[in-house]
Design a binder for these strands. Structure first.
Lengths: 103, 103
DNA sequence: TATATTGTTCGATATTCGACGAACATAGAA
DNA sequence: TTCTATGTTCGTCGAATATCGAACAATATA
């Protein structure tokens, strides 16, 4: 059960986080995880190919925004708690305006 | 004295703003403008070519973050006030962490 | 008018990104 | 072991991005 790579907390950068959030699909994923907690990676209703979804989740994981846990054949993503310590309040400030793009 | 193109307020998007801010050079420019008000475009101490600087300023302008004013042979950029109306508090929340990348 | 200053635009190059399908890997089920 | 479900990785494509130098445009000044 090899778990996916996550960067160190010290490697989380502001520009990296902003770049990861600057995509509507990824913003939607983050918004769902923030409001609903951990989600299986099939539960996001994006009309994109599975490989593309995997790509976006990887971007969010490597930016330090998401945790990614494998369990059996399933994958679960949740918000990475260190993000709030590194950039307290940032995510909330951004997601407050998310519906403008995600809806 | 043709003035450069600025998008309509309604065209300012969250993802567009985040993408524009997800670059260290641009983040630095915005930070300087926010703290120091209007600046001549030669006053940013970035060690990049003038054409590249022009490109970055264009990105920020087209994202709705900066105003761009030409006066004679000089150019002056300042924060676009509509940004605060569209996404109140967003810029402050981001720039609070800017030194981590800009310094 | 001629020259200098200041930015912008253009062309070239290299990189990255978002998207897809196909192939692969892993783990559980039959 | 064989099959099935679930994701990941790979290869590829076109589009976008970052960077530079060179050429250009506009304005002020000599």
């Amino acid at each position: 059960m090899k778990q996916p790579f996550h960067p160190e907390t010290a490697e989380i950068t502001l520009t990296g986080v902003l770049a990861a959030l600057s995509d509507p699909v990824r913003l939607k994923i983050v918004a769902e995880v923030v409001t609903g907690g951990e989600r299986g990676s099939t539960e996001f209703d994006c009309k994109i190919a599975g490989s593309t979804l995997s790509h976006h989740i990887k971007q969010l994981r490597e930016a330090g925004i998401l945790q990614h846990r494998k369990e059996g054949t399933r994958c679960f993503v949740s918000l990475r708690p260190e993000l709030e310590q590194v950039f307290p309040g940032l995510l909330e400030s951004v997601l407050r305006f998310a519906p403008k793009d995600v809806a």
